[in-house]
Design a protein around this nucleic acid. Structure first.
Lengths: 345, 345
DNA sequence: CTGAAAGCGCTTACAG
DNA sequence: CTGAAAGCGCTTACAG
């Protein structure tokens, strides 16, 4: 049997209450008693029982994370790992543990968080991505349960969130290509229901529009574009009468598929087509050619998300905290976009 | 305030004990009472408080996972994500949650599991990788606390573990190259302290030896070989008087670095050098050239690890369970190794 | 088949 | 500065 507060108390010749108080650093405890108790604690190898503590304090010192199903976003693998790493680091630093759960679909996700929330297992939750009409956001919001969103929510604007300025990021990426003389620039997007797809699309269009360039609908690929379809997509793109000379791509891993397709078709990057994408995957700089990518500081996103959430959990006046944190991004220019095009205008 | 067992009891006109019993599916409860109680429960939106339950049952229905620091094995990113995904899926299916913690170094890792174990937060732990003289294994083993190891341990052979037969896997990979006529085959390994590096090295040497081929020490790169050093390593390899014509590489991401180096030096794969590596990264089949890789079923490793652990936790007679599970692997042959060499013998 | 009671290991007013 | 007591929400012998 593990050693309890009672054992320590008896050994130290004090009451359990006193032991509890030195444990929580209560101010009105004499130095002498405190140090004596502490000595006994290490001597006996005492560790407080978190379950008992949680039961009475109504606080668990842990936060929940729902792992998204791979299906719809296989290619974001490293994204989630980096995010979780950031979350775990900062949470641990603040004395919190991370509880991970998962659901095979949105319904199951709601059930999973429901179990965690109502079971009293977590003090708050972080949602790893933003979808349209996310039932989990709906659920947590109605419960008024503390949570933070990586991304943003369209229905509830005031939700605590940590995000990249994806409109700006896509705008920057597109501007970069425009500055190299490209006029026909395509956009390869991700799943339509992700807010990130929407925002980056917006930034892309904005940059094109501002530069007086048109965005033909056949230059835009949306929906679940998986790496595997890179070949097909490219064979379509490249045979267009007015084919794009550059592409903005939603994620580096999608670019890998695109590059594979182009390679099979005998096209060279960046000579025949320039590419810039997002998320700065670890593999991107090793690729041939090295891939230009917008680094969005994924680890940092996770770190700040955890920080903001814990602040919200512990804070008294929630309205005081910044509701929306934007993490700066940075375009890493590499070979895949380093090619000047003559302006034909 | 959340609804408790007492509220349900009062509402249903029974005692709390009865409610508790229908909750746990106790056999000697009348159908009538049971269904009445259940109705009230959903009506009131009752959810059992896990903390209270844990406190008395001495069981948490959650298992701990320590996240390794990125530093030493950055390139294994997707490996850990897949592993965790497998663990989470199976654990959730069995009604367990996953608690994740991390440490910046081995000492901190021990402290992290210590907190989880002694705080009574977890019923068991899974260790994501195997190192030589792992203090965490030491710690858990001495405590006789249930845990499962992905990989194997050298000091304690009888530890519950789930592993790839890495000797065989490397043997297979090397044989594959030998069958294409290669005689000078190099090996690019990973961190020396990982058991996986050691095992794959052994398989490589075994295959070489069996085929009557020698393994020069300058054909072997060990230690923290990061992707970034691919260039340097390759410029060394390729200028050797008797340079290798093929390479076995510890992980696909390391191969990406190698390919980058070769590309910059103007060598072609597979024509100038054949490559086969491990872990079948999602990006590998998209690469140019597509990378031959041994698929070790990472998700499956995680799934079985979780399963074995939970079985061990719940089982009465621990000795009955298989202590060591081997997950089958499979070589995915792709372009990077598809090149015949003339035998010069 | 069901209830009253004790207890899991802690915290926290309430006294002193 | 410290202790005795009640209680967090549940489970589980022990009776009946």
């Amino acid at each position: 049997m593990a050693v309890t507060i009672k054992d320590v108390a008896k050994m130290a010749g004090v009451s359990p209450s006193t032991v509890s108080r030195v444990l929580s650093g209560h101010p009105r405890i004499s130095q002498k008693t405190a140090s004596k108790v502490r000595t006994i604690m290490t001597e006996l190898g005492y560790h407080p029982n978190m379950m008992a503590k949680s039961l009475v304090s109504k606080t668990t010192k842990s936060i929940g994370v729902i792992l998204p199903k791979p299906a719809e976003e296989l290619f974001l693998n490293t994204f989630f790992m980096e995010l979780i790493r950031g979350i775990v680091s900062q949470a641990n630093k603040s004395g919190y543990d991370i509880v991970i759960s998962s659901g095979a679909n949105e319904q199951e996700e709601v059930e999973a968080v429901g179990r965690l929330v109502h079971g009293g297992r977590i003090d708050g939750a972080v949602l790893l991505h933003s979808r349209q009409n996310d039932p989990v956001v709906e659920y947590l919001h109605n419960l008024d349960f503390p949570f933070v969103l990586v991304g943003r929510n369209e229905q509830y604007q005031d939700v605590l969130s940590v995000d990249t300025d994806n409109v700006q990021a896509a705008y920057d990426a597109t501007r970069h290509l425009i500055s190299f003389g490209h006029e026909r620039i395509g956009f390869v997007s991700g799943p339509k229901n992700l807010i990130v797809s929407k925002d980056r699309m917006k930034g892309y269009k904005k940059a094109m529009h501002e530069a007086g360039l048109s965005t033909k609908s056949e230059w835009i690929v949306e929906d679940d574009f998986l790496q595997e379809s890179g070949y097909r997509a490219m064979s379509f793109f490249m045979t267009l009468p007015e084919r794009p000379t550059a592409l903005v791509v939603i994620d580096d891993v999608v670019s890998f598929g695109v590059l594979r397709g182009l390679n099979e078709l005998g096209y060279k990057v960046p000579e025949d087509l320039c590419i810039v994408s997002f998320n700065n995957n670890a593999v991107s700089e090793l690729y041939s050619p090295p891939l230009s990518s917008v680094d969005i500081g994924i680890y940092h996103l996770g770190y700040v998300a955890s920080q903001a959430l814990i602040q919200a959990i512990q804070g008294d006046d929630k309205s005081l905290f910044c509701k929306r944190h934007i993490i700066p991004h940075r375009l890493m220019v590499r070979q895949s976009s380093m090619h000047n095009v003559m302006r034909t205008t």
